[in-house]
């Protein structure tokens, strides 16, 4: 039995159903059980904490449930396996720190705090990591403005970068008003 299976079995009480996508195994855990789950995985043999990162599902099409996800990327140097432990969070919900399990979690948690505003209770030095002190807000939240300048053309046409890109992906009507499918303007003989 592989190490991942052993850990998933021991986490059964704490977690939801494990998911697999292209050889990557991830499991979701409740906010209250995250330290316990990560500690169990570490004790079972996942000796390296590769990364902690946040995801903001605010504008993900069709997403239901809580807005944020924080994922713990664990790796075992002994059995060469990787496991992602995920925890879903609503806005303003906090997470307990795991810096007592891995000192290296310090920078990773600080980065998540900086980019998403998710606080880690008990972190010894929870400060911003990458962005300047005077920057308001958390840049990786999907509602954080990109800071591009809207362009006003000579003929009075106004180009809003976000709307232009939205139109390109076909998810939003954007500038061209095209929603996918046949373009009426081309085929009608008016």
């Amino acid at each position: 039995m592989s190490l991942v299976e052993t850990v998933l079995r021991s986490l059964k009480k704490l977690s939801g159903k494990p998911a697999e996508f292209k050889d990557m195994i991830s499991v979701s855990v409740d906010r209250g059980h995250i330290v316990e789950a990560v500690a169990q995985a570490k004790a079972a043999g996942f000796d390296m904490l590769s990364d902690i990162f946040g995801i903001d599902y605010l504008s993900y099409p069709g997403h239901q449930g809580k807005r944020f996800t924080v994922a713990y990327n664990l790796y075992s140097t002994l059995s060469n396996e990787r496991l992602f432990i995920r925890v879903n969070l609503a806005d303003k919900e906090t997470l307990p720190t795991i810096t007592h399990l891995w000192r290296g979690a310090s920078f990773m948690e600080r980065e998540v705090y900086d980019m998403f505003g998710i606080e880690f209770a008990g972190h010894p030095d929870l400060r911003k990591l990458l962005t300047p002190e005077d920057l308001d807000g958390h840049p990786h939240r999907k509602d954080f403005p990109l800071g591009e300048t809207p362009t006003l053309f000579d003929d009075g046409r106004f180009l809003d970068p976000a709307a232009f890109r939205a139109g390109m992906t076909g998810q939003d009507k954007g500038l061209t008003g095209w929603k996918g499918g046949v373009r009426k303007g081309v085929t009608s003989g008016e």
């Binding site: 000796d47 390296m48 904490l49 590769s50 140097t77 891995w102 290296g104």
Partner: peptide
């Protein structure tokens, strides 16, 4: 041990 604890790669 320190290397693994601090995430050195």
């Amino acid at each position: 041990e320190q290397a693994l604890e601090h995430g050195l790669t």
